[in-house]
Nucleic acid binder design. Structure first.
Length: 492
RNA sequence: GCCGCCAUCGUCUAGUGGUCCAGGACGCUAGGUUCUCAUCCUAGAAAUCACGGGUUCGACUCCCGUUGGCGGUACCA
């Protein structure tokens, strides 16, 4: 059996769209599952869309996600390098190859030179639309004699090379996800293969490279379903084997339109910045359009499990709405599973972006202190960028209205003695652990927890919502806790 | 306009002719745990399986049509 080789072939547009990211994930999973090769190829054939550093950013996201590929374009010490026997893997470095094959096609009568100006083409299409016809190249240049072509070439008239589509019959293929797809050849346009600037179009470069790189399965977005017959004719014109195709469903906005920037973040980079873990993003995105089937109700999948269970046959056909609520939930699940050590390491960069953190005294920035804060916050975090956000009292002085201390209808005298009682209990604890603090406080509160714990919690945090007072006291330490109780008592 | 793809709770989905008056998850609501918030646990609401015809003893599942959504229709990918 032929070796399975798949590729992720993005064009560097400046950021990694989550839809593209999912294509990369599925392609990666398919390769791993089938012990095949996974290749990263760069499709930068549109010079008008050139974006600086886009290539680097793309690779960085792939590296972040851990989609290890075995061949293609890499980033090493900030330099773009290429590895593998089928290179180059950047299409703009393969121009001679495309030219050669395009001319071969012309020789064989499967393609022809076209000298039509963009203006003429536009006019032609406008007319066709006005006549309610499908816009399609009218093959004007196909009628040119060999001499006329030579003459125009000699005079330097800009030209493109167009594919001469098989006019009769229909082209059929079996999509791995959708089954049989059939399109009548008469609706197919004589598409441009080689542009006048010498660059190939996606439609051409893709076929040439997939063949030359021995790609066995073409996995890509749904938007290519209708142009695939043109690809297939190209393979046939060359006498090449046609690879298998799998067209993935689209990712959608909540209003079911194609996922776009307008309606929220579409760049994977945005989610990285917000503190979503790579495991969460991969898990979430994997489930958008795929599930293991067979009645499985599993929601959380490690990368290993995804590789083991992934199957193109279980990819859903319809587009999936990108719903962030579930991403939050999945991310919270992964954060809960992190060790404090891992959580600390991953959260560090987010702490450093926060003003309240940077303004805090040095003793509040130690690893030991931050780990305590994280231990208290771990079950509450939906993403890493929220770190410390709802518990700023760990880092700064607090101020609050005296009335906030009042539990239900307690009077000032009772409030004062409640705080004094807390002061006494905490003051007597020498083994300052979370467990000890909780035990002593609950013991003292007996069945009147609110009367003791509410005023204490407010005294320590200045907030009406916070973690429990024993946890807060544990983080703050004995000295600071007693100091804050003292400050509360001063209000009386 | 033409061509193609798709269509199950708000959302992601299970379901491949009978076990489905449709199961799970997120979200939502209520209750429990609880000093508050979050977590956690329990329960609940939520889908005339887009609609209409067939085929069949029987259809969410197969076929046809309609409607709707989306994609393509570029010297963009």
């Amino acid at each position: 059996m032929k070796k399975i080789r798949v590729r992720f072939a993005p064009s560097p547009t400046g950021y990694m769209h989550v839809g593209n990211f999912r294509t990369a994930l599925y392609t990666y999973l398919f390769a791993k599952k089938n012990k095949g090769d996974f290749i990263l190829r760069i499709e930068d054939t549109d010079q008008k869309r050139y974006v600086k550093d886009a290539l680097e950013k793309l690779i960085q996201v792939l590296d972040w996600a851990g989609f290890g590929y075995s061949e293609g374009v890499y980033l090493e010490n900030n330099n773009v390098i290429q590895k593998g026997e089928f290179g180059p893997y950047i299409q703009s470095e393969r121009l001679d190859i495309y030219k050669k094959y395009a001319h071969e096609l012309v020789e064989n009568g499967h393609a022809y030179h076209c000298f039509c100006t963009p203006e003429r083409l536009e006019e032609m299409r406008a007319e066709q639309i006005a006549r309610k016809q499908a816009p399609k190249y009218d093959q004007a240049c196909l009628k040119l004699s060999e001499e006329e072509v030579m003459e125009k070439m000699k005079s330097g008239t800009p030209y493109v090379i167009r594919q001469k589509i098989q006019a009769e019959g229909a082209t059929e293929y079996t999509d791995l996800i959708r089954g049989k797809i059939r399109i009548e050849n008469e609706v197919l346009d004589d598409q441009v293969l080689l542009k006048s600037d010498g660059y190939p179009t996606y439609n051409f470069a893709n076929v040439i490279d997939d063949h030359l790189m021995e790609i066995s399965h073409v996995i890509r977005g749904e938007e290519y379903i209708s142009s695939t017959p043109k690809f297939i004719q190209l393979y046939q014109n060359f006498g090449w084997n046609v690879p298998a195709f799998a067209h993935l469903p689209l990712l959608l906005n909540p209003d079911k339109s194609k996922l776009s920037k307008r309606q929220g973040d579409v760049a994977v980079e945005d989610y990285i910045k917000k503190g979503y873990l790579k495991e969460s993003v991969a898990n979430f995105v994997a489930l958008l359009g795929w599930n293991p089937g067979e009645g499985s109700t599993q929601e959380i999948f490690s990368m290993e499990e995804l590789i083991e269970k992934f199957d193109l046959a279980h990819v859903h056909k319809a587009g999936a709405v990108f719903d962030l609520k579930k991403l939050d939930w999945i991310n919270a699940q992964y954060i809960k599973k992190l060790s404090i050590d891992e959580l600390y390491k991953k959260s560090l960069e987010f702490w450093k972006q926060k003003d309240f953190f940077n303004a805090a005294s040095d003793d509040k920035k130690t690893e030991e202190y931050l780990k305590k804060v994280l231990e208290v916050e771990q079950d509450r975090l939906k993403n890493l960028s929220e770190v410390g956000e709802s518990n700023k009292f760990f880092f700064q002085n607090i101020s609050y209205d005296k009335e906030l201390l009042r539990w239900k209808d307690m009077n000032d005298g009772d409030l004062k003695s409640s705080l004094e009682k807390s002061r006494k209990i905490l003051g007597e604890i020498s083994n300052w652990t979370k467990e000890k603090l909780e035990q002593k406080l609950l013991e003292a509160a007996a069945d009147k927890r609110g009367e003791l714990l509410w005023p204490l919690r407010v005294a320590l945090t200045g907030e009406q919502r916070s973690p429990s007072p024993s946890d807060v006291a544990w983080v703050l330490g004995k000295k600071e806790s007693l100091k804050r109780i003292e400050q509360a008592l001063e209000k009386f």
